[in-house]
Write a protein that binds this DNA or RNA. Structure first.
Lengths: 199, 199
DNA sequence: TACATTTGCTTAACGGTGTTAAATTATTTA
DNA sequence: TAAATAATTTAACACCGTTAAGCAAATGTA
């Protein structure tokens, strides 16, 4: 009977509806306030039927993560295809990566574990800049230019911070990896950027 | 009466106990499973007592964050003091930053919003490497060495990834900042690393 | 058509969460 | 000793993820 297929198609559709509803809620209210009951509300069912489509809440997150990786790969691939030389390709691919992160903020957060519990109040925390200021100061001293413009120092600082914070984050979420390689990347990067500071 | 001070001292002590208990729980079970009742259990009180010392759960997290920043600043400062030349200082300071992140993993996670909801299952997700592989491939092609050793390519890849992921993370948690500066940092970094790829 | 079975979905419930208000106990003051 | 105040707990609310039981409609079978 064809009705079997029709029903199967409907089931697939509600599966998609669940994922879409979840993403919608997250876009509006953030990952913290995503709940099974809210998803159920949005798809006009009650919470328990979600468990017919996903093992649990984590199952939904996992599927969204998976889709995120697939979208990302797609964008990186098309970026590559638009160029010929490997250098141009590489640049375009990383820019595609960057753009993906902001086009699909919520997915990126989920994929790479970037999330802030309490963000607003953290801006009014003077202690947050203590270490930054110390480093800032030294960067200024290193620069051979006299009175380097503020935004130049700022850019150098952010470049440093990005690479080190990035390396740390990757290690914190992926647990360990290769300790020796990390040290080499870290030291290489620091030396490299210090040299590049007066480019 | 001196008892006033004694009582005040006791109150300060339980305040510290609350913070310590929270951190202990997080060290053992992660941020996700930190609860007011667990903290209360650990300090041998009931949950509502905590609200005499902190406005709410976020208040506890905020105070721990604050302490994290203070510790970090301390470690960076002493690292600086151990060297004379600004270049040596800068290197030592970033290494201190790095070491802080791993010595106080939980605090770092809290301070910079690095947390993974579902980490174990994510390892067995082949889609997670689709984009990585594409980029890997191109990096290999760029390298002038014939048959570059695996771990060298890997290091280059991680260097790229770190700086871009770091920059993205910082922007995702700090919301925006300077869009134009970001683009410059991004492009500079990419160009710089591509050049540095064949150092 | 009449009955039995399966399916789709909901209601109810369990143990957990953050948080608040009321009740209770202990301590200090008069 | 009685009254007032402080310290602490119990009870409750609304929410959470999740599971089991119940119900009602659709389906299969005689």
């Amino acid at each position: 009977m064809g009705s079997k297929e029709r029903i199967a198609r409907l089931k697939d559709e509600t599966r998609l509806n669940i994922l879409d509803a979840a993403l919608d809620i997250v876009k509006d209210e953030g990952w913290q306030s995503l709940s099974m009951r809210k998803i159920a509300d949005k798809i006009e069912y009650t919470a328990p039927i979600i468990y017919e489509y996903f093992a649990n809440k984590e199952g939904i997150l996992l599927e969204l993560t998976r889709r995120g990786y697939i979208i990302l790969a797609g964008e990186v691939r098309t970026a590559k295809q638009l160029h010929e030389s490997p250098a141009d390709q590489l640049e375009a691919m990383w820019i595609a990566y960057w753009n993906f992160a902001f086009k699909y903020k919520e997915l990126y957060r989920l994929m790479y574990g970037v999330d802030m519990n309490c963000c607003e109040l953290k801006k009014s925390m003077p202690e947050a800049e203590l270490a930054d200021d110390l480093i800032y100061e030294v960067i200024e001293k290193i620069m051979t230019v006299d009175n380097p413009p503020e935004d130049l120092v700022c850019r150098k600082f952010y470049t440093f911070w990005s690479i080190i914070h990035g390396l740390i984050s990757i290690n914190l979420v992926n647990k360990g990896r290769n300790e020796e390689m990390n040290q080499r990347i870290l030291k290489d990067a620091i030396k490299g950027i210090i040299k590049y500071i007066n480019d």
